Computed example of a mutant assay.
Amino acid sequence: MTMQRRDFAAALTAALAAPAVLGAAPAQADERRGEGDLSRDMLAALTAELGGDRHTAKALVPLLQDVGFDWHPETAPLKKFDFVVAYGFGNRPPAGGGDPAKVLFEPGPVNEALADTVARVRSRIDVPVYAQWEIARFLDSKYGMRDVTSIEPVIAADGTITYLSTDGVAAQILEHRKKAPGGVGTACVIGFRDHHKRCVQTTRDRAMPAYAPAGITVPGTYDPESGQAWTRRRDLYLVHDMVAQLTVLRTKLIAQAYPNG
């Protein structure tokens, strides 16, 4: 392994292993390592790894940098938004036990924190809220909030529960917004810190203009008792989220390269 590749590998390992770096604000991250320096190191390392194929390396570097090194969604001021979208994160196993395939999981503390964030936003802008059910439960029980549409899991005739993915939630919200008097409008997206960027991207992929709210801090503390193993620890979740981002990216790139199949 060349010195360049060792340097890049060390930088990648440090970035993935150090929550402080990944959780830093963009300006702080730039102080630790300039974006230009990172891009150049990645390009050099990947070109060498691909046997001198700089063309392919140049195409891959911005994609890898976006998926692995950028965890901050684009933001907009609160006055820009027409509605709020809130995506859940994690849960807790059913308190009373029973068949987890047919008994709803408990919303859990992270979703309560997300509901608290929605409440802070709603105290400043009076717009409709579309919240994944785990969050909507707290918006009702804790805040008695009006004008909230809960996006529920799908329950089959035999009682089997299918929980919606992030994209599944976005698809449901789009159907609601198509019926809004003023049209779809612009979404204020609330999500867990490390999920937030993908929440915004997924909302946009469903043809809804979307941003994170500027000046609003979202929850970022993991629940080690979550019923979803990948949402218990940051290192595990980031891998999970990168896989999800890459899966969507793969589909888009293939469609762009070969629109006719």
Results as ranks from 00 to 15, higher is better:
H195T: 05
L174F: 12
A157R: 07
T166A: 13
G215V: 09
P209Q: 12
A214E: 15
I216F: 12
T203K: 04
K197P: 09
R177N: 02
I155V: 14
Q172D: 06
W133T: 09
Y211E: 03
I135P: 00
R193D: 08
D158M: 08
T202L: 07
C199D: 01
V189A: 09
I173C: 00
G168R: 00
G182H: 14
M208C: 09
A210Q: 00
E134D: 13
P153W: 00
S141N: 12
D158E: 04
D158R: 09
T149A: 13
A210R: 04
S165P: 05
E175T: 14
V169Q: 07
Y143S: 01
A157M: 08
D194E: 15
G191T: 05
F138P: 03
T160M: 00
Y211R: 00
D140G: 12
D205R: 15
K197Q: 14
F138R: 09
E152M: 08
A210E: 07
K197D: 14
H196A: 07
E152N: 06
P213W: 02
I190F: 06
S150C: 06
Y163Q: 03
T166C: 10
W133G: 10
S165G: 05
I135K: 05
D147E: 14
I155D: 02
V148M: 07
Q172A: 11
K179R: 15
S141Y: 15
R204Q: 13
S150R: 10
K178W: 09
I216Y: 11
R146W: 09
Q172N: 12
T162R: 13
F138M: 10
A187I: 02
K179A: 13
R193H: 10
T203N: 04
R193F: 14
T202I: 11
D147G: 08
D205A: 13
K197M: 12
K142H: 07
A170M: 04
D158H: 08
Q201L: 14
R204K: 15
D147K: 00
R193Y: 12
C188D: 07
H196I: 08
Y163D: 03
I151S: 07
D205Q: 12
Q201T: 14
G144S: 01
H196S: 07
P209A: 13
R193P: 11
A131N: 02
D147V: 09
I135S: 01
K178I: 08
P213K: 02
V148H: 03
R177Q: 05
I216R: 11
R204I: 05
Q201D: 15
C199M: 00
A136L: 03
G159H: 05
P181M: 02
G215N: 10
V169A: 07
V154M: 13
C199A: 14
A207N: 15
Y211H: 02
T160W: 09
K142L: 11
R206V: 03
I190Y: 06
A187R: 04
L174R: 12
Y143V: 04
A131G: 08
G144Q: 06
A210C: 07
D194R: 11
T149P: 01
P213A: 03
F138K: 05
D205E: 15
T149S: 14
P181K: 02
D194A: 11
R146Q: 15
T186N: 12
H195L: 15
P181I: 01
Y211P: 09
A156L: 09
H196M: 03
A214W: 13
S150E: 05
